[in-house]
Design a protein around this nucleic acid. Structure first.
Lengths: 248, 248
DNA sequence: AAGTGGTCTAGACCACTTG
DNA sequence: AAGTGGTCTAGACCACTTG
């Protein structure tokens, strides 16, 4: 529970910590009425803005529910949810303490198929760049990447060799601040994936598919990342304690 | 981009939306200097508290970085990350529009093994309740659940039959506000899972393991959820647009 | 009618950091 | 020394909701 940072906590941080502690330890059960703002003002000898800031943050984090005229109440915890961060591949490999490398296996320019048009929401058969890559952790195949890039959205990609920078990282530099939808599932490796990952055909692989869109909701890229199932693990931590902590 | 809610946006919401829009569309690229607070005050004819609130929120969401004396700047986007919500099983099945049911296959009280003690951080061989359940979507096996409950932390579990409520939901009612760590991977189904899920041995299954701890960091429960790989999909959306929206 | 939260103002003092 | 952000105050007006 102690904080390694030397600086004293601000007043609203202290109030936030106090209330969170009471909720997380179960001292204040779901449904418990939080003292009204005026009581908290007296208790902490502070202004209303300060307690309001705290309660607003807790409400955003869904730990409390606020109702006019009635007051604020500890929420019923929403079901077992997780906040999962999927890091980029280079970061994942680096975390293993193994040298990272990648190779481009295939690169071709073509028109989007009908299926792709539907999946990515293209109005017409836009030109796309199809790329296949293999990412390696040391000598070992780490991930097989199949990617489609919308060349209408990112025409520079057509001339890029992707020798220096893998397509994912390259795109992130050029088209920042996209929205993404992920789909994660387990499948049996088909022939090509199995061969490239050095595993048996039909062996379990973890498949992550991501469609990335710009703020205007144009599909920028679709990528399928295929990981050998027994070597890869997504880890997610759900901790309500993070609420309102400054992002660093 | 339009909002279906009829009420007009508050001033700070409008400012937040404006700045986010500029960042998400790439009009303000990473590194771009945000107008200083006094400029924004003039621009929106508002007080410093109001603009400060907006910039603080954006900084918490890591869309901007604030530096004293220098100003605030659009962040370099962090790598392709996702916010993933894993719903509870009943909710998942309900979303399919199929009747949900579950059955308890096995229930036994015993002492934690050395391996379990290490995994869950028990100091000694605490008494645990071992439970196996099968969750069904209609007639079809949906998920096989293997669970361990720490009876030192939740002694009432020993007497519970889990006929009405599945163990996960039952625990959530009794021990709210836990912290959880998830591990997600693809594996080949071993004999028992395969049989219970009605799939071939070795077929790909999606395995989610979760260790749940109380605020005092005592392990409450460990659960392994095994889903037929081809029938289950985790979906995660990462959208910076959600920043600061009231939680509803 | 009254309690409670939602939002905003105008100002203050300070800390940090660059030059 | 000066610019910028970090935090806080005291007060205001209003909206919503319960009784």
């Amino acid at each position: 529970m102690s904080d390694s940072s030397p600086q004293p906590l601000s007043l609203h941080q202290r109030i936030l910590n106090d209330i969170q502690q009471l909720i997380l330890t179960g001292t204040w059960q779901p449904g418990h009425k939080i003292p009204v703002e005026h009581e908290l003002m007296k208790q902490y000898n502070c202004s209303r803005m300060t307690v309001s800031k705290v309660l607003t943050q807790l409400a955003h984090a869904r730990m409390i529910e606020r109702r006019r005229k009635s007051g604020s109440f500890v929420s019923r915890p929403h079901s077992q949810s997780a906040v999962l961060t999927i890091p980029d591949i280079k970061t994942e490999v680096a975390a293993l303490g193994v040298p990272y490398s990648f190779e481009v296996l295939h690169k071709a320019r073509r028109k989007a198929t009908a299926e792709e048009r539907e999946m990515l929401g293209f109005e017409r058969a836009v030109p796309v760049l199809e790329i296949e890559c293999r990412h390696l952790a040391g000598e070992r195949p780490f991930c097989f990447e199949q990617r489609l890039i919308n060349l209408d959205a990112v025409p520079e990609a057509a001339k890029e060799t992707f020798e220096e920078t893998a397509p994912g990282a390259w795109l992130l530099q050029r088209v920042p601040w996209t929205l993404a939808e992920h789909r994660i599932r387990a499948t049996g490796a088909e022939a090509r994936s199995a061969k490239l990952l050095g595993i048996d055909r039909g062996a379990a692989v973890l498949t992550i598919e991501r469609t990335t869109r710009s703020a205007q909701s144009t599909a920028i890229t679709f990528v399928r990342l295929i990981y050998p199932g027994d070597q890869h693990e997504l880890v997610a931590t759900f901790s309500p304690e993070r609420v309102g902590r400054p992002a660093q």
